[in-house]
Amino acid sequence: MSSASAATRTLGGVELPAAGEWKLDPGHAEVGFVGRHFMMTKVRGRFHGVDSTILVGERPEDSKVTAVIDIASLDTGDKSRDDHLKSADFFDVEKFPKATFTSTSVTWQGTSGSAVGDLTIKDVTRPVTLQIDYLGYARDPWDNDRIVFSAKGKVNREEWGLTWNMVLESGGLMVSKEIELVLEFEAIRQA
């Protein structure tokens, strides 16, 4: 049996990850977001501190995802903006240092699917839907089996109490309410 066949399986004519536990490789993960400044300019940020486990089910729809996000690891490339986002105006990192995501249901068709889950920020829990694409399998030079995913979703930040904003003279808002979630990550098969 080859390494690929041990780490993957074919379901419905499509190669998918083998059932079991897979852990996020933080060195090869992008857990990010995109918002709008002045309702025009895209501002991107990411969280460097993320711990996530994917339990791939025998049936793909039985899979589960959990993640813990270190909010203090937020990085937008601008220290003053990062400090403001970490302040009580937004994430209030001193009081709420972590955010969590726990999937509640998964649907799957071919190499794409969605995960609905509970996202908790500042002790507020709301449902979020992530659209997921399975990009494939690779075996690295250190004999680790890796799977690669891409996911995205949209949230209204105000639903989690992230309500700071300013009305612009032109009538718009300084910071968009809608935030796009963008995830690119590799996960390593656990023994």
Score class of each variant (00 low, 15 high):
residue 1 M to F: 13
residue 3 S to V: 13
residue 5 S to G: 05
residue 7 A to I: 08
residue 7 A to K: 06
residue 17 P to I: 09
residue 22 W to P: 03
residue 23 K to G: 03
residue 27 G to N: 12
residue 31 V to S: 00
residue 36 R to H: 15
residue 39 M to G: 08
residue 47 F to R: 00
residue 53 T to C: 07
residue 54 I to W: 07
residue 57 G to E: 01
residue 61 E to K: 10
residue 64 K to P: 00
residue 66 T to N: 09
residue 66 T to S: 14
residue 67 A to T: 04
residue 68 V to S: 07
residue 68 V to E: 10
residue 69 I to A: 02
residue 73 S to K: 04
residue 75 D to W: 08
residue 78 D to A: 15
residue 82 D to G: 07
residue 82 D to P: 05
residue 82 D to T: 02
residue 84 H to R: 01
residue 87 S to E: 11
residue 91 F to E: 03
residue 97 P to M: 02
residue 97 P to W: 01
residue 98 K to Y: 04
residue 101 F to V: 02
residue 103 S to T: 07
residue 107 T to C: 05
residue 109 Q to A: 11
residue 110 G to Y: 02
residue 111 T to M: 11
residue 113 G to E: 04
residue 115 A to T: 09
residue 118 D to M: 09
residue 119 L to E: 07
residue 121 I to P: 02
residue 124 V to T: 13
residue 124 V to D: 07
residue 125 T to A: 14
residue 126 R to M: 08
residue 126 R to I: 09
residue 127 P to D: 12
residue 133 D to N: 15
residue 136 G to T: 09
residue 141 P to G: 02
residue 145 D to A: 10
residue 146 R to M: 14
residue 147 I to G: 01
residue 147 I to Q: 14
residue 149 F to R: 02
residue 150 S to K: 15
residue 150 S to E: 14
residue 150 S to N: 13
residue 153 G to P: 10
residue 154 K to T: 14
residue 154 K to R: 15
residue 156 N to M: 10
residue 165 N to F: 12
residue 166 M to F: 11
residue 169 E to I: 09
residue 169 E to S: 13
residue 171 G to C: 08
residue 173 L to D: 13
residue 174 M to A: 15
residue 176 S to Y: 11
residue 181 L to M: 10
residue 182 V to E: 12
residue 184 E to D: 15
residue 191 A to P: 15
